[in-house]
Amino acid sequence: MQMRRTTTPRTIRLAAIGIALASVTAACGSDDASSDGGTVTVYIGRQYGIEPVFEAFTEATGIEVRFTSGGDPELRERLIAEGENTPADVVLTADAANIELSAQAGLLAPIESEALTAAIPAELRSPDDLWFSLSRRARVVIYSTERVTEPPTTYAAVGDPQWAGRVCLRPSTHPYTQSLVASIIAAEGEERATEIVSSWVANDPLYINSDTDIYKAVASGECDIAIANTYYLGRLQTENPDFPVAISWPEQDGRGAHVNVSAAGVTANAPNPEGAKRLIEWLATDGQEQFAAANFEYPADPTSPVNELVATWGEFTADLGVVLRLGELNPAAVEVLSVAGYE
C-alpha cells in the first residue's frame, strides 16, 4: 500500500465536525424538567389515535400531557429500573395482564377517587384501586358473510373439524391470544383449555400476526372464520362499509365474549400524582366517550354512549368476571399454548 500524502476532503471534515457539534448540543439540551406542575407524563403501551384525546384533556384542564409509547413489558422494566427517579406519572396499558403485573411489582399507588369508583364497575378495576379500566376490547369469532351461514358461537366450536383448513388465528406471541386462552382456563379449567386449543391447532390454522390482515384474509377467502378483536372491523368498515366480514358474538348463552381492557394507574413515584389522577379521572368521565371511540372500543363505564358505528354490531354479554384474573392466569395460558403446539 502506498502512502502518498493525502488530506481528507474538506467537505467530509466539515461535515464530521458539524455532526459532532450537533450531537454534543443535542446531548446537552435534553434536560427537560420532569416534574413541572402543569405536565403529566404517561408511559403508554400501543394506543391507536390517543393524541387527540390527550389534546382534548389539555384543552379542558390546562394540564399538558407528554408521553412515551412502547411495548408494555419494556416500559414496565424501565419503570422498575427507574424506581424513585421515574418521570412517569401514569401507566396506560393495552391489556389487563400488563397493568396487573405492574401492580404486583409495586409500581402503582392506590388512587382514592370517588369519581373513578362511581364510573368504573368493580369487575374492571383492581380491588385495591391500583388501576382502573378505561375501555373494553372484545375478542370474538368473525366470519365471511359470503361463505359462512352458521358461524361458531363458542370459542371451542372454532376447533370443530368442519373448519379444518378454514381458520385464521393470531400467533401465541401476542397478548390478545394469551389473554383469550387465560379466560378459557378460568372458565373451563386448564385441561379442557388445552383440549380446546389443541382442537384449533388440529384444524391447521393459518397464523397471521395482525388482526387487520386476519380480517382481510377472511374477506379475500384465505379463511372462512377467525378470532379477532372487534375494533379493527371499525377501521375497515370506515374504509369500506360493505366489508364482507361480520361478528359472531361467542359464549352468549354462558359467560359471554372474552373482553380485555385498556387500563391506567398512577405510578408509585409519580412526580405529579395530582395531575395523574386528574388525567385518569377525566379519561373515565368527560373523556370516556372520546377515549373509547378513538379506537372503536367499548367504554369501560357502561353508562357511557357507544360509538355509532360500533353500536351497529349489536349488544353482547361480556365475560367481565375474569378481567381481574387475566394477569395471574397469563403464564398458564402461555404454557397451554405451548403444550398444544399453537404456533
Partner: peptide, 17 residues
C-alpha cells in the same frame, strides 16, 4: 411466522414475565 431463539426470548419474557 418463523420462530427463532431471539423470538423465543421475547416470547418467554413478555409472555410469562
Amino acid at each position: 411466522n418463523v420462530s427463532t431463539i431471539a423470538d423465543g426470548v421475547l416470547r418467554v419474557w413478555f409472555g410469562t414475565g
